[in-house]
Design a protein around this nucleic acid. Structure first.
Lengths: 100, 100
DNA sequence: TAGGAATATCGGGAAAAACCGATATATATT
DNA sequence: AATATATATCGGTTTTTCCCGATATTCCTA
């Protein structure tokens, strides 16, 4: 867990927003064919639509959050699904409480 | 508490380092005349020396951490002392655990 | 195997952040 | 008042981040 990488990943309004949406996917995204939000997450296209940014930007943002360890991804067919890595948030919380 | 402001303040190696030092001032700073670390904190000059950056940069960094609510400051004579606002760290930890 | 759909990557222009040196301000001392 | 010390602020250069359009890659289907 690299704190600096994590804090940089969290230093953007859109990326914070994405994390909020992914906390309650069923609330913010419409259920689709394949979409089992709890298990596999939400695909890039659905997230992009809500962001209002271009596909390439959103793809990069998701890769960045993934690299920071805050998200997990699963590729199924031509879709990549992203969901939160709740353990990372727990660890971050604990780190701030005791070590930061 | 503005999360984005806080995360931006934490997105810098030197500023994270300063926060670590201020967690245990007696460990990292030499006691001076006026310095009651627990009560009033550490003055800018002492922090600057450990950073190895210029006075103006360190002063700006401290102002930034102050503005984010992570530090408190006290002016005594010609010195400004900075110390951690532990409540802010607690709140941030709680926020990440439950809301982020 | 050709074409389409979803996502990733690349190159770049604009905006923000990281620093710096110079200078301003505030306080203390003589 | 003049000088010295500690800190804050200002203006500017370099580096990083933001975000885009274009293109590449991967996988699916006809």
């Amino acid at each position: 867990m690299d704190q600096l990488t994590i804090f940089k990943a969290l230093s953007n309004k859109t990326r914070l927003q994405i994390l909020e949406w992914l906390k309650e996917p069923e609330k913010y995204f419409s259920a689709e064919e394949n979409a089992d939000f709890e298990q596999i997450g939400v695909c890039v296209g659905q997230i992009q639509q809500k962001c209002g940014l271009t596909q390439s930007t959103v793809s990069e943002y998701l890769a960045l959050l993934l690299h920071a360890g805050l998200l997990e991804s699963t590729r199924i067919g031509q879709w990549t699904y992203y969901k939160r890595n709740e353990e990372a948030f727990q660890q971050l919380s604990d780190f701030i409480k005791s070590a930061l």
